[in-house]
Design a protein around this nucleic acid. Structure first.
Length: 620
DNA sequence: ACGGGTTACACT
DNA sequence: TAGTGTAAC
């Protein structure tokens, strides 16, 4: 990991905010009579009372643990209230928790860069806000400091005090403190305010850690729960890490134990960076060395939306799926939910998922052990419930064939999941194709035919094939082409045999894609009249955030026009290979490359003309 | 028969 | 790359 801002390594103000037993709080807000009572959230309850996924602090006092089943919790805490996770389509429905998480994020993201680390955790980079506060109204100038801030736990503060708050007050207001500590003091106040605002606006409590980097902030947020905050001045770091009795977890943890006899973070200190690198590689090695010293350069990523959406369900033991009809049924349920989620994501956040992945675990009836793993499979994601279901089924079938090999007799599937990933922003220049044509004439809305309008378009050439009247636009401009606002659309080529000399100008389709920004809500029946024969290549510009310089990286990516509500694109896998022959020679080779690199989930037997993709059914 | 369902990321 | 594995909540 490169260290991003060497100048600001140890004096950033980073907060980690962690919601207290979040699912429980969400349910308690729904049912306020449960507040203050021992409560747990369980998922399903047919088997041993369901699995606990969140436990209130009242219930924890009874010894209720997250790893228990509902029945077990009832044993140790007979008065516990068990609330079930909502179920939709036969599976757990976490949407209420997701949106509750979003409520919180929208409050927490107000004062600095915000990273949504999980459904109930965020990191904040409050450096700038703290600097501002320090110069404009430092803590020492504030008369009545927020009580929530005074209740903070500042690691390393010594000396007893009558009410316990004065020490904190003194620390916050130290005028002779080093700059770093003053910044942390400002961070303390800011976070206290934020947590207070979260409580007022959402009724949720949370805990927080405030430190100079993510790792320490995270460590601190868990130290005093619930509803408290902990500050880690850099002077406290050494003691903090040394005092951690915690075994290092995970595979890496046990490997450290086995190889070097390292059990705790403190044990790591004795090893040189080179030694650690030699065992665990340069990356992990330096990482370990730094972690042992409380150093972490990880930036708070400005990301409040998830990078992927997944839906899964397990089918343990006797519930395992044994027929493809069963698999198909559950796949359909999962895909239906996934479709809803990607659909609303695209509407709310103007972005699209590009990859569909299927995951499964399965066992063969024959050899009880040595079960080969079910391979995960992925393909381009096409929007629309039916398409997602269709593709997921194909992915499963292909995975199953590979899994089974020769003997196809018996199998059991014990888990299924579908994931939508590679989510990219919709370039702001993209917009409804209808809007484009509406821009040319009012007659669409007043009943006029699209066909008439297209006929009038000088940059459009017309011809007929067996079934359609085809309107073609041509705009071939590699690299030199007018870039859209975001630089995303660099090349558009359209084609069907002979084409009129292109007329660049205000009516070109390229212009359309780069200029129109308002989505056309009123998608009408007109859409099935559109039979444009267009190939379009979306190439992100060179300064794109992912940092690729080589444009070829993108040529696999979004090709052509696929329709998604207010965005139309067609992707390589949707292109009928036969039309490629008709492309200008200089582009043919390139397009062939894209086609090769783009996998379809099925045998390429379907005769899918490019034309068809402009007359798809509307998304409900 | 597994804490389940999700997410993210490093590695190859 | 697509696919695997690990880890965390």
């Amino acid at each position: 990991m490169p260290i991003p801002r060497p100048d600001r390594q140890g004096d950033r103000v980073i907060a980690h905010v962690d919601m207290d037993c979040f699912y429980v709080q969400v349910e308690q807000r729904k049912q306020p009579e449960l507040r203050g009572l021992p409560t747990a959230v369980v998922q399903y309850n047919e088997w041993k009372g369901g699995a606990l996924i969140a436990v209130s602090y009242e219930a924890r006092k009874f010894g209720v643990k997250r790893s228990m089943r509902g029945d077990e919790a009832k044993m140790v805490c007979p008065s516990i209230h068990l609330v079930q996770v909502p179920v939709a389509r036969g599976k757990a429905d976490l949407n209420s928790y997701r949106s509750a998480g979003s409520e919180v994020v929208s409050i927490l993201s107000a004062r600095g860069r915000c990273e949504r680390a999980s459904i109930d955790e965020v990191y904040l980079d409050l450096t700038d806000a703290a600097e501002t506060m320090l110069s404009e109204s430092p803590p020492e100038a504030i008369e009545d400091i927020d009580e929530e801030a005074l209740k903070s736990h500042v690691l390393g503060i010594t000396g007893a005090d009558v009410d316990g708050l004065n020490n904190v007050r003194r620390w916050l207001c130290q005028s002779d403190a080093v700059h770093k500590d003053k910044l942390l003091a400002c961070g303390t106040i800011i976070v206290a305010q934020l947590r207070d605002e979260v409580l007022r606006k959402t009724e949720f409590t949370c805990s927080a850690g405030i430190a100079h980097n993510k790792m320490l902030a995270k460590l601190a947020s868990g130290m005093h729960k619930p509803a408290q905050q902990t500050i880690v001045p850099s002077s406290a770091v050494t003691n903090l890490l040394a005092s951690l009795p915690k075994q290092l977890g995970g595979k890496l943890g046990s490997s450290l134990h086995d190889d070097l006899g390292v059990n705790t973070v403190g044990d790591l200190l004795q090893f040189s960076e080179e030694k650690l690198q030699e065992r665990y590689g340069v990356n992990t090695g330096t990482w370990l060395w730094n972690i042992a010293r409380g150093i972490s350069g990880d930036e708070v990523e400005g990301r409040i939306l998830p990078k992927s959406h997944g839906c899964g369900k397990t089918f343990p033991g006797p519930r395992a799926l044994k027929t493809s009809a069963c698999v198909e049924h559950w796949l359909n349920q999962l895909c239906e939910e996934l479709n809803e989620r990607v659909q609303s994501d695209s509407e709310q956040n103007k972005r699209v998922a590009n990859t569909l992945t299927l995951h499964a675990t399965a066992h063969k009836a024959s050899d009880i052990q040595l079960h080969k793993k079910f391979p995960s499979k992925s393909c381009p994601l096409r929007y629309g419930r039916d398409k997602i279901q269709e593709d997921a089924k194909k992915l499963f079938d292909s995975g199953l064939r590979e899994f089974l090999g020769s003997h196809t007799d018996g199998w059991r599937v014990t888990s299924l999941s579908v994931i939508a990933s590679k989510i990219l922003d919709i370039p702001s220049g993209s917009c409804s194709i209808l809007k484009f044509f509406q821009g040319k004439s009012q007659s669409i809305t007043s009943g006029g035919s699209l066909e008439d309008i297209l006929d009038d378009d000088p940059s459009c050439s017309t011809e007929r094939d067996d079934e359609h009247k085809v309107f073609s636009y041509e705009e071939c401009s590699k690299d030199g082409g007018a870039p859209s606002q975001d630089g995303l659309i660099n090349t558009v080529c359209a084609q069907k045999k002979s084409i009129k000399p292109k007329e660049k100008g205000k009516n070109s389709i390229l212009k359309f894609f780069s200029s129109i920004d308002a989505p056309a809500k009123q998608a009408q029946n007109d859409t099935n009249l559109l039979h444009l024969n267009i190939l379009m290549v979306r190439v992100p510009n060179c300064t794109d955030p992912q940092g690729y310089d080589d444009r070829r990286h993108y040529t696999h990516d979004g090709i052509s026009l696929r329709r998604l509500d207010d965005l139309w694109t067609i992707r390589a896998e949707d292109i009928d290979p036969s039309v490629v022959d008709e492309l200008p020679l200089e582009i043919q080779q390139e397009v062939q490359g894209w086609l090769r690199s783009s996998k379809r989930p099925h045998n390429c037997t379907r005769r899918s003309s490019l034309l068809n993709y402009f007359s798809l059914d509307k998304p409900t």
